[in-house]
């Protein structure tokens, strides 16, 4: 982490993040298997801070497994074996001493299907801070408002904060889930197919939000929608059968991929 050398980087550096970008997440020879079945085979990459990084690839390529490693969501699945290292802001997150709850506060997650609690809009966002022991009502109120503002939802819900979150539209529910994740002030935001259940306008709002949020957070998004990766991300990684085939800045990946398998996938030539 103490790389202050001004010498040119050796050609073997991990793909994806140019030397000028500060890495937020460093993944080193990460392997994951479900029982005997390998799902990730030696992934090494550096994910840049304050950027949107997208993982694309066909179903079963390991992109969601990779995303879920970043806040140890895979711990919850039986028979998972993980080797290799993941460092977030320089700290190894795999070690036994890591407080997983604290890790998930630092690395928030938004899922494919919006999953608001069957509570009021306010209580959904206040949930995290309360769990973390914030007692001051005004402090929670401030946090709820700023999170809802960050998630571009405040203007739509400010007059009905105490209504049930389940009465919001799908797109609003998804932004509420983002607000809920932001309320605990994470450093990284993981998004697993965040727009696959949304219409194009709601999708555009989430993508716009990603662009605004990356100023403060590092965002990693898994998407089946290649156009979404092209529109919304700064870096894109293409995974296939558990391997990171190609990882580079998004315009380069979508105009001049180097690997034939990337080329075939993004041009719609599926083998």
């Amino acid at each position: 982490m103490n790389e202050i050398s001004i010498a040119p980087k050796p050609k073997t550096r991990r793909p994806g993040v140019p030397a000028a970008e500060e890495p937020m997440i460093e993944i080193d020879r990460l392997c994951l298997s479900y029982g005997d079945k390998p799902a990730l085979k030696g992934i090494s990459m550096r994910i840049a801070k304050n950027r949107v990084t997208a993982f694309i690839g066909p179903s079963g390529c390991g992109k969601s497994s990779l995303l879920r490693c970043l806040n140890r969501m895979n711990d919850l699945i039986d028979g998972v074996r993980i080797t290799g290292a993941i460092r977030i802001a320089g700290t190894d997150i795999q070690g036994p001493a890591v407080d997983v709850t604290h890790l998930r506060k630092r690395v928030g997650m938004v899922f494919q299907k919006s999953n608001p609690f069957p509570k009021s809009i306010y209580d959904n966002v206040a949930y995290g801070p309360r769990i973390l022991g914030v007692r001051s009502r005004s402090e929670i109120e401030t946090q709820v408002e700023s999170s809802l503002r960050s998630a571009a939802l405040w203007d739509e819900v400010r007059d009905r904060l105490y209504e049930s979150a389940l009465r919001l539209s799908g797109g609003q529910q998804q932004r509420l889930c983002i607000a809920r994740a932001l309320a605990v002030e994470p450093e990284v935001l993981l998004m697993d197919e965040p727009c696959s259940a949304l219409d194009p306008i709601a999708t555009a709002k989430i993508e716009e939000l990603m662009d605004e949020l990356k100023v403060r957070y590092t965002i990693v998004v898994v998407t089946h929608n290649m156009q979404q990766a092209a529109r919304a991300s700064d870096y894109t990684g293409f995974l296939l059968l558990g391997e990171l085939i190609e990882f580079k800045d998004t315009p380069a990946l979508f105009t001049t991929p180097v690997d034939r398998r990337t080329e075939d996938y993004i041009t719609g030539r599926f083998g």
């Binding site: 979508f254 105009t255 993004i266 041009t267």
Partner: peptide
């Protein structure tokens, strides 16, 4: 078709 890569080029 939103072409990419070699198709786009």
């Amino acid at each position: 078709r939103q072409p990419a890569a070699s198709d786009l080029r």
